Deep mutational scan, measured.
Amino acid sequence: MAAGGDHGSPDSYRSPLASRYASPEMCFVFSDRYKFRTWRQLWLWLAEAEQTLGLPITDEQIQEMKSNLENIDFKMAAEEEKRLRHDVMAHVHTFGHCCPKAAGIIHLGATSCYVGDNTDLIILRNALDLLLPKLARVISRLADFAKERASLPTLGFTHFQPAQLTTVGKRCCLWIQDLCMDLQNLKRVRDDLRFRGVKGTTGTQASFLQLFEGDDHKVEQLDKMVTEKAGFKRAFIITGQTYTRKVDIEVLSVLASLGASVHKICTDIRLLANLKEMEEPFEKQQIGSSAMPYKRNPMRSERCCSLARHLMTLVMDPLQTASVQWFERTLDDSANRRICLAEAFLTADTILNTLQNISEGLVVYPKVIERRIRQELPFMATENIIMAMVKAGGSRQDCHEKIRVLSQQAASVVKQEGGDNDLIERIQVDAYFSPIHSQLDHLLDPSSFTGRASQQVQRFLEEEVYPLLKPYESVMKVKAELCL
Rank of each mutant, 00 (worst) to 15 (best):
L222P: 01
P24S: 13
E64I: 12
H107W: 01
C172G: 09
P133E: 09
C305Y: 00
H400A: 04
N384K: 06
M387D: 02
S454L: 09
A22E: 07
L461K: 04
A335R: 02
F282D: 10
Q285N: 13
Q221L: 14
E376A: 05
D332S: 00
E228R: 11
L469E: 03
L355W: 07
G288Q: 02
A102I: 08
G394V: 07
D182M: 00
F379H: 07
S151W: 10
I269H: 02
K66I: 13
D59Q: 09
F95V: 07
P24I: 15
C266W: 03
A136T: 15
R459A: 12
Q241Y: 00
M65G: 05
I72Q: 13
S257W: 06
D420I: 04
I57W: 03
Y13Q: 14
W326F: 15
R83I: 10
E79Q: 12
T154R: 00
L355R: 01
L121I: 11
D398C: 11
L121Q: 11
F232Q: 01
F160S: 07
E250Q: 12
L377S: 02
F327I: 09
K295Y: 00
Y13R: 09
G419V: 07
L211S: 11
D129G: 13
P298G: 02
K170F: 08
T313Y: 07
G203L: 02
S447E: 12
R459N: 15
L341C: 15
T154I: 10
N421I: 07
C483D: 13
L362W: 04
T119D: 06
A260I: 00
I403V: 12
F208I: 11
Q428Y: 08
V457L: 06
N185D: 06
R14G: 15
F145G: 06
W175M: 03
C98V: 11
D192V: 08
I358W: 04
V390M: 10
G393D: 09
D430E: 13
A77T: 14
M316V: 10
N68T: 11
L484K: 15
I386N: 11
R190G: 11
L275A: 12
V115P: 15
R196P: 01
G197M: 00
W43F: 09
C340W: 04
D422H: 10
S334W: 01
S257R: 05
I238A: 09
L484T: 15
Y432K: 06
Q416K: 09
M76P: 07
G169D: 01
M292Y: 00
K276D: 08
L468V: 14
D182F: 00
L44M: 08
L152E: 09
T350E: 14
A163D: 03
P446W: 02
R374C: 06
K224A: 14
N336S: 12
M225E: 11
S474G: 14
H442S: 09
I123L: 13
A388D: 02
A3N: 15
L443N: 04
E302Y: 01
Q177R: 04
F282R: 09
L272E: 08
K170V: 01
A77N: 13
L443G: 03
T202D: 08
K187Q: 12
K82F: 09
L186A: 12
A230P: 00
L121E: 08
I351H: 05
V413P: 03
V414A: 04
Q164R: 01
I385N: 04
E250I: 15
A77G: 12
R20W: 00
I339Q: 15
P153C: 13
R303L: 02
D191N: 10
G116T: 15
C483E: 14
W175E: 05
I139S: 09
V226D: 00
D268F: 03
D420E: 07
S306Y: 03
E401F: 10
L443A: 05
P293I: 03
T244I: 04
K75L: 09
T242H: 05
E220P: 01
V390F: 03
T354W: 03
S12F: 12
R337N: 00
L84M: 07
I369K: 04
A388I: 04
L406Q: 07
T38E: 11
S407I: 01
K229V: 04
T201V: 08
G169A: 03
E70R: 14
N384A: 13
L484S: 15
S151F: 09
E462F: 13
F433E: 03
I249E: 00
F36P: 01
